[in-house]
Protein backbone atom coordinates (compact mmCIF):
# COMPACT_ATOMS: atom_id res chain seq x y z
CA UNK A 1 0.00 0.00 0.00
CA UNK A 2 1.45 3.34 -0.96
CA UNK A 3 1.58 6.23 1.47
CA UNK A 4 -1.09 8.09 -0.44
CA UNK A 5 -3.46 5.15 -0.17
CA UNK A 6 -2.68 4.78 3.50
CA UNK A 7 -3.49 8.43 4.04
CA UNK A 8 -6.75 8.11 2.14
CA UNK A 9 -7.67 5.13 4.27
CA UNK A 10 -7.03 7.06 7.43
CA UNK A 11 -9.23 9.85 6.17
CA UNK A 12 -12.12 7.60 5.26
CA UNK A 13 -11.94 5.40 8.33
CA UNK A 14 -11.18 8.04 10.96
CA UNK A 15 -14.41 9.66 12.09
CA UNK A 16 -13.20 13.25 12.04
CA UNK A 17 -10.03 13.04 10.01
CA UNK A 18 -11.55 13.90 6.66
CA UNK A 19 -13.77 16.69 7.88
CA UNK A 20 -12.24 20.12 7.79
CA UNK A 21 -12.09 21.06 11.44
CA UNK A 22 -13.00 24.68 11.84
CA UNK A 23 -13.32 26.47 15.16
CA UNK A 24 -16.91 26.91 16.27
CA UNK A 25 -17.92 30.00 18.18
CA UNK A 26 -19.42 28.02 21.03
CA UNK A 27 -16.48 25.59 21.19
CA UNK A 28 -14.17 28.55 21.65
CA UNK A 29 -15.59 29.02 25.12
CA UNK A 30 -14.52 25.52 26.12
CA UNK A 31 -11.19 27.03 27.16
CA UNK A 32 -12.95 29.57 29.38
CA UNK A 33 -14.87 26.83 31.12
CA UNK A 34 -11.75 24.70 31.53
CA UNK A 35 -9.84 27.70 32.85
CA UNK A 36 -12.58 28.47 35.35
CA UNK A 37 -12.62 24.88 36.62
CA UNK A 38 -8.84 24.74 36.78
CA UNK A 39 -8.50 28.02 38.67
CA UNK A 40 -11.18 27.33 41.23
CA UNK A 41 -10.06 23.76 41.80
CA UNK A 42 -6.60 24.97 42.73
CA UNK A 43 -5.88 24.71 46.43
CA UNK A 44 -4.22 28.14 46.40
CA UNK A 45 -7.33 29.88 45.06
CA UNK A 46 -9.47 28.31 47.74
CA UNK A 47 -6.97 29.30 50.43
CA UNK A 48 -7.04 32.92 49.25
CA UNK A 49 -10.83 32.94 49.34
CA UNK A 50 -10.69 31.35 52.80
CA UNK A 51 -8.45 34.15 54.09
CA UNK A 52 -10.77 36.75 52.59
CA UNK A 53 -13.81 35.11 54.19
CA UNK A 54 -12.02 35.08 57.55
CA UNK A 55 -11.49 38.87 57.65
CA UNK A 56 -15.17 39.81 58.29
CA UNK A 57 -15.40 37.03 60.87
CA UNK A 58 -12.42 38.47 62.77
CA UNK A 59 -13.70 42.05 62.49
CA UNK A 60 -17.19 41.01 63.58
CA UNK A 61 -15.95 39.07 66.60
CA UNK A 62 -13.56 41.88 67.59
CA UNK A 63 -16.33 44.45 67.46
CA UNK A 64 -18.67 42.16 69.36
CA UNK A 65 -16.13 41.60 72.15
CA UNK A 66 -15.13 45.26 72.39
CA UNK A 67 -18.72 46.47 72.60
CA UNK A 68 -20.04 43.74 74.88
CA UNK A 69 -19.77 46.11 77.87
CA UNK A 70 -21.97 48.68 76.11
CA UNK A 71 -19.18 51.03 74.99
CA UNK A 72 -18.85 52.10 71.38
CA UNK A 73 -16.00 50.98 69.11
CA UNK A 74 -12.77 52.84 69.78
CA UNK A 75 -14.56 54.92 72.40
CA UNK A 76 -15.00 57.76 69.88
CA UNK A 77 -18.06 59.67 68.74
CA UNK A 78 -20.63 58.56 66.18
CA UNK A 79 -18.04 58.70 63.41
CA UNK A 80 -15.74 56.44 65.39
CA UNK A 81 -12.10 56.90 66.26
CA UNK A 82 -9.77 54.62 64.32
CA UNK A 83 -10.42 51.57 62.19
CA UNK A 84 -11.97 51.22 58.78
CA UNK A 85 -14.98 53.22 57.64
CA UNK A 86 -18.38 52.37 59.12
CA UNK A 87 -16.91 50.29 61.95
CA UNK A 88 -18.71 52.27 64.66
CA UNK A 89 -22.09 51.58 63.08
CA UNK A 90 -21.82 47.79 63.08
CA UNK A 91 -23.34 47.36 66.54
CA UNK A 92 -26.48 49.20 65.39
CA UNK A 93 -26.82 47.28 62.16
CA UNK A 94 -25.02 44.12 61.03
CA UNK A 95 -25.27 45.25 57.41
CA UNK A 96 -22.54 47.77 58.13
CA UNK A 97 -20.14 44.87 58.61
CA UNK A 98 -20.31 44.39 54.83
CA UNK A 99 -19.12 47.97 54.23
CA UNK A 100 -16.52 47.72 57.00
CA UNK A 101 -15.16 44.42 55.73
CA UNK A 102 -14.88 45.72 52.16
CA UNK A 103 -13.18 48.89 53.40
CA UNK A 104 -10.78 46.76 55.44
CA UNK A 105 -9.89 44.30 52.66
CA UNK A 106 -9.80 46.68 49.68
CA UNK A 107 -6.47 48.39 50.46
CA UNK A 108 -4.49 45.19 50.74
CA UNK A 109 -6.10 41.74 51.11
CA UNK A 110 -8.28 41.89 48.01
CA UNK A 111 -5.67 43.37 45.61
CA UNK A 112 -3.04 41.02 47.00
CA UNK A 113 -5.25 38.03 46.19
CA UNK A 114 -5.85 39.47 42.70
CA UNK A 115 -2.10 40.05 42.31
CA UNK A 116 -1.40 36.41 43.10
CA UNK A 117 -3.98 35.06 40.65
CA UNK A 118 -3.19 37.59 37.89
CA UNK A 119 0.57 37.29 38.30
CA UNK A 120 0.37 33.53 38.08
CA UNK A 121 -2.02 33.55 35.11
CA UNK A 122 0.53 33.32 32.28
CA UNK A 123 3.83 33.04 34.15
CA UNK A 124 2.57 30.06 36.17
CA UNK A 125 1.70 28.19 32.96
CA UNK A 126 5.10 29.08 31.52
CA UNK A 127 6.75 27.90 34.73
CA UNK A 128 5.00 24.53 34.60
CA UNK A 129 5.62 24.19 30.85
CA UNK A 130 1.90 23.80 30.25
CA UNK A 131 1.88 27.08 28.29
CA UNK A 132 3.59 25.46 25.29
CA UNK A 133 1.02 22.67 25.16
CA UNK A 134 -1.90 25.12 25.43
CA UNK A 135 -0.42 27.16 22.56
CA UNK A 136 0.26 24.08 20.45
CA UNK A 137 -3.29 22.79 21.10
CA UNK A 138 -3.72 25.57 19.65
CA UNK A 139 -5.34 27.86 22.16
CA UNK A 140 -4.32 30.96 20.19
CA UNK A 141 -2.34 33.63 22.01
CA UNK A 142 -4.99 36.35 21.95
CA UNK A 143 -7.71 33.90 22.92
CA UNK A 144 -5.64 32.51 25.78
CA UNK A 145 -4.80 35.99 27.07
CA UNK A 146 -8.43 37.13 26.88
CA UNK A 147 -9.50 33.97 28.67
CA UNK A 148 -6.90 34.55 31.37
CA UNK A 149 -8.05 38.14 31.85
CA UNK A 150 -11.69 37.07 31.99
CA UNK A 151 -10.81 34.54 34.68
CA UNK A 152 -8.88 37.11 36.73
CA UNK A 153 -11.87 39.46 36.51
CA UNK A 154 -14.19 36.63 37.54
CA UNK A 155 -11.89 36.04 40.48
CA UNK A 156 -12.13 39.77 41.40
CA UNK A 157 -15.90 39.40 41.56
CA UNK A 158 -15.86 36.10 43.43
CA UNK A 159 -13.29 37.40 45.92
CA UNK A 160 -15.29 40.56 46.63
CA UNK A 161 -18.54 38.63 46.93
CA UNK A 162 -16.84 36.18 49.29
CA UNK A 163 -15.96 39.05 51.61
CA UNK A 164 -19.45 40.57 51.29
CA UNK A 165 -21.38 37.35 51.85
CA UNK A 166 -19.18 36.31 54.75
CA UNK A 167 -19.64 39.77 56.30
CA UNK A 168 -23.38 39.71 55.79
CA UNK A 169 -23.63 36.29 57.41
CA UNK A 170 -21.47 37.24 60.38
CA UNK A 171 -23.30 40.60 60.72
CA UNK A 172 -26.69 38.88 60.73
CA UNK A 173 -25.55 36.36 63.34
CA UNK A 174 -23.82 38.76 65.74
CA UNK A 175 -25.72 42.04 65.33
CA UNK A 176 -29.25 43.30 64.76
CA UNK A 177 -30.42 44.05 61.22
CA UNK A 178 -32.88 46.71 60.16
CA UNK A 179 -33.29 50.12 58.54
CA UNK A 180 -30.04 52.02 58.31
CA UNK A 181 -28.77 55.56 58.35
CA UNK A 182 -26.68 56.81 55.43
CA UNK A 183 -23.59 58.98 55.84
CA UNK A 184 -25.80 61.97 54.97
CA UNK A 185 -28.06 61.12 57.90
CA UNK A 186 -31.14 59.98 55.98
CA UNK A 187 -32.90 56.69 56.75
CA UNK A 188 -33.16 53.97 54.10
CA UNK A 189 -34.93 50.64 54.33
CA UNK A 190 -33.05 47.37 54.93
CA UNK A 191 -33.92 46.17 51.42
CA UNK A 192 -32.53 49.41 49.97
CA UNK A 193 -29.46 48.92 52.19
CA UNK A 194 -28.96 45.40 50.81
CA UNK A 195 -29.17 46.79 47.30
CA UNK A 196 -26.53 49.37 48.15
CA UNK A 197 -24.34 46.64 49.66
CA UNK A 198 -24.51 44.66 46.42
CA UNK A 199 -23.77 47.78 44.39
CA UNK A 200 -20.80 48.55 46.62
CA UNK A 201 -19.50 45.00 46.22
CA UNK A 202 -19.70 45.40 42.44
CA UNK A 203 -17.89 48.75 42.58
CA UNK A 204 -15.19 47.24 44.79
CA UNK A 205 -14.79 44.36 42.32
CA UNK A 206 -14.55 46.89 39.48
CA UNK A 207 -11.89 48.79 41.47
CA UNK A 208 -9.67 45.75 41.08
CA UNK A 209 -9.80 45.75 37.27
CA UNK A 210 -6.69 47.95 37.12
CA UNK A 211 -4.42 45.82 39.25
CA UNK A 212 -5.74 42.73 37.46
CA UNK A 213 -4.55 44.17 34.13
CA UNK A 214 -1.26 45.24 35.67
CA UNK A 215 -0.73 41.77 37.14
CA UNK A 216 -1.51 40.10 33.82
CA UNK A 217 1.01 42.34 32.06
CA UNK A 218 3.70 41.52 34.62
CA UNK A 219 2.79 37.87 34.15
CA UNK A 220 3.64 38.03 30.43
CA UNK A 221 7.08 39.45 31.21
CA UNK A 222 8.53 36.54 33.14
CA UNK A 223 8.57 32.78 33.11
CA UNK A 224 8.35 32.49 36.87
CA UNK A 225 4.95 32.56 38.56
CA UNK A 226 6.42 33.48 41.93
CA UNK A 227 8.37 36.43 40.45
CA UNK A 228 5.24 37.75 38.74
CA UNK A 229 3.16 37.44 41.91
CA UNK A 230 5.84 39.12 44.03
CA UNK A 231 6.29 41.94 41.51
CA UNK A 232 2.56 42.64 41.33
CA UNK A 233 2.10 42.64 45.08
CA UNK A 234 5.28 44.75 45.42
CA UNK A 235 3.86 47.30 42.97
CA UNK A 236 0.66 47.37 44.99
CA UNK A 237 2.50 48.12 48.23
CA UNK A 238 4.70 50.75 46.55
CA UNK A 239 1.71 52.55 45.07
CA UNK A 240 -0.14 52.42 48.39
CA UNK A 241 2.86 54.00 50.14
CA UNK A 242 3.41 56.65 47.46
CA UNK A 243 -0.27 57.51 47.70
CA UNK A 244 0.35 58.57 51.29
CA UNK A 245 3.18 61.00 50.49
CA UNK A 246 1.71 64.53 50.21
CA UNK A 247 4.51 65.86 47.99
CA UNK A 248 3.39 63.46 45.24
CA UNK A 249 -0.14 64.83 45.05
CA UNK A 250 0.34 65.81 41.40
CA UNK A 251 0.65 62.21 40.25
CA UNK A 252 -1.48 60.52 42.89
CA UNK A 253 -4.73 60.77 40.88
CA UNK A 254 -3.15 58.34 38.40
CA UNK A 255 -2.48 55.65 40.99
CA UNK A 256 -4.87 52.75 40.52
CA UNK A 257 -5.63 52.75 44.24
CA UNK A 258 -6.22 56.49 44.60
CA UNK A 259 -10.03 56.47 44.43
CA UNK A 260 -10.58 52.98 45.87
CA UNK A 261 -12.35 54.13 49.01
CA UNK A 262 -14.75 56.28 46.98
CA UNK A 263 -17.21 53.37 47.19
CA UNK A 264 -18.33 54.88 50.53
CA UNK A 265 -19.94 57.69 48.50
CA UNK A 266 -22.61 55.18 47.52
CA UNK A 267 -23.80 55.42 51.13
CA UNK A 268 -24.56 59.11 50.71
CA UNK A 269 -28.01 60.43 49.93
CA UNK A 270 -27.99 61.57 47.19
CA UNK A 271 -25.04 59.49 45.94
CA UNK A 272 -21.90 61.55 45.30
CA UNK A 273 -20.75 60.27 41.91
CA UNK A 274 -17.61 62.32 41.11
CA UNK A 275 -14.94 60.11 42.65
CA UNK A 276 -16.83 56.92 41.79
CA UNK A 277 -16.79 57.86 38.11
CA UNK A 278 -13.12 58.89 38.31
CA UNK A 279 -12.33 55.52 39.90
CA UNK A 280 -14.13 53.50 37.23
CA UNK A 281 -12.59 55.62 34.47
CA UNK A 282 -9.12 55.11 35.91
CA UNK A 283 -9.65 51.35 36.17
CA UNK A 284 -10.80 51.30 32.54
CA UNK A 285 -7.68 53.24 31.54
CA UNK A 286 -5.43 50.76 33.35
CA UNK A 287 -7.28 47.85 31.72
CA UNK A 288 -6.78 49.36 28.25
CA UNK A 289 -3.14 50.39 28.73
CA UNK A 290 -1.85 47.30 30.49
CA UNK A 291 -4.20 44.96 28.61
CA UNK A 292 -2.71 46.24 25.32
CA UNK A 293 0.81 46.02 26.70
CA UNK A 294 0.17 42.44 27.81
CA UNK A 295 -1.24 41.59 24.38
CA UNK A 296 1.65 43.22 22.54
CA UNK A 297 4.13 41.38 24.71
CA UNK A 298 2.44 37.98 24.75
CA UNK A 299 1.67 37.74 21.04
CA UNK A 300 5.27 38.54 20.11
CA UNK A 301 6.97 36.50 22.79
CA UNK A 302 9.22 33.52 22.10
CA UNK A 303 7.93 30.68 24.23
CA UNK A 304 11.08 28.91 25.36
CA UNK A 305 9.72 27.52 28.64
Amino acid sequence: MSQAEAATDAVTTGPAAGAVRAPRLLWTFGLLRSELLTTFRRWRTLALLGVLAAVPILVGIAVKIETSDGSSVGGGGPDGGGGPAFISQITNNGLFLVFTALAATLPFFLPMAIGVVAGDAVAGEANAGTLRYLLVAPAGRTRLLLTKYAIVLAFCLVATLTVAVSALTVGAVLFPLGDLTTISGTQISFADGLGRALLIALVVAASLVGIAALGLFVSTLTGSGIAAMATTVGLLITVQILDQIPQLHAIQPYFFSHYWLSFADLMREPVYWDDLVKNLGLQGLYAVVFGSAAWARFTAKDITA
Partner: peptide
Amino acid sequence: IEGPALYGFLSGRDNLLRYDAADPTAD
Protein backbone atom coordinates in the same frame (compact mmCIF):
# COMPACT_ATOMS: atom_id res chain seq x y z
CA ILE B 1 7.90 18.99 23.09
CA GLU B 2 10.77 18.68 25.56
CA GLY B 3 8.95 16.23 27.75
CA PRO B 4 5.43 16.34 29.13
CA ALA B 5 4.07 19.26 31.17
CA LEU B 6 1.11 18.57 33.40
CA TYR B 7 -1.09 20.19 36.02
CA GLY B 8 -0.05 18.21 39.08
CA PHE B 9 -3.25 18.95 40.99
CA LEU B 10 -5.43 17.59 38.19
CA SER B 11 -5.96 13.93 37.38
CA GLY B 12 -4.43 12.53 34.20
CA ARG B 13 -7.87 12.51 32.60
CA ASP B 14 -8.57 16.14 33.59
CA ASN B 15 -5.21 17.19 32.17
CA LEU B 16 -6.21 15.77 28.79
CA LEU B 17 -9.70 17.32 29.03
CA ARG B 18 -8.06 20.69 29.60
CA TYR B 19 -5.65 20.39 26.67
CA ASP B 20 -8.49 19.28 24.46
CA ALA B 21 -10.63 22.23 25.55
CA ALA B 22 -7.80 24.55 24.50
CA ASP B 23 -8.33 23.48 20.88
CA PRO B 24 -11.27 25.45 19.46
CA THR B 25 -11.72 22.89 16.69
CA ALA B 26 -12.22 20.00 19.14
CA ASP B 27 -15.82 18.89 19.51
